[in-house]
Simulated scan of single mutants.
Amino acid sequence: MTSSAPLAAAVTQLHDSLLTTPAWPADAALLPSEPLWHWVATNHRNNCLLWAEEDLARRTTVSEAEIAKNKRAIDGYNQARNDATERVDELLLIGLGLVDAESARSDAPRSTVPAGARLNSETAGSMIDRMSIMALKIDAMRKQTLRSDVDDAHRASSQVKLERLLQQRQDLGDCLDGLLADSAAGKAYFKVYRQFKMYNDARFNPALVAEQKAQQAKTSGG
């Protein structure tokens, strides 16, 4: 695959095929080895795991400890999802020749964008991340149209929603391909945007910093 080739259809096919694979998302061995597709699939895997934990976190008949466990898992999957999105952007930008490859993974990647190109506020990686979530919504809504324990009105309403979701994913995919085509032609570009998720980092989260200080004071005082 070249960096300027249409990507959305292949991304959609990968997302949907993985969702129908019995061992997915538990089995990380299903991740492709080719770097770009590895990270596209890794992003999708973490979205799938995140989706399942979000469902579990809404339970009302389990202990608070179980919900806290779900919430911590959500934080971890969300971090991994964002990390994978950044890897996708790095690889696409390197392939497009829009970033210095040696600095691509740093906190300050060096741009090699041609003069006059417009900056797109959303990155290609974030569009692919949104397509992953759309794939999950489509899969879940399609299952609603096949339920036998609900009435016809529920299935019909779900079918309307499914058709809208499919159109929304198609629109998003068209925008992705348009951005990549314009970027390959020197008309547009995007950047690697670092998320810097501070709530997961004990060096930055003020609540975790306070806990550490309290523990250190307790230890030194003892």
Rank of each mutant, 00 (worst) to 15 (best):
D27N: 10
E66H: 12
L98C: 09
A101I: 11
T85D: 07
E64G: 14
H15A: 03
K71Q: 12
W39D: 03
L91K: 08
V99Q: 00
E54K: 06
A68I: 15
N82F: 15
H15T: 01
A52D: 07
W24V: 01
W51N: 05
T21R: 07
A65K: 13
E34K: 09
R58V: 11
I74S: 02
K71T: 08
P22S: 03
A65I: 12
D89Q: 10
H44K: 05
R59V: 12
V88T: 02
W39F: 10
A73W: 06
T42L: 09
E34W: 03
Q79D: 15
W39R: 01
L50G: 00
A80T: 07
E34Y: 09
L91G: 06
L96V: 05
W24R: 04
V40E: 00
T85S: 05
L30Y: 10
W39L: 04
C48K: 01
D83W: 13
R87K: 12
N70V: 08
H44T: 04
R72H: 13
S33V: 15
I74M: 02
W24K: 05
E66L: 13
E34S: 08
D55C: 14
A29D: 13
H38S: 05
V99W: 00
H15F: 08
L96R: 07
W37Y: 12
E54G: 02
N46Q: 05
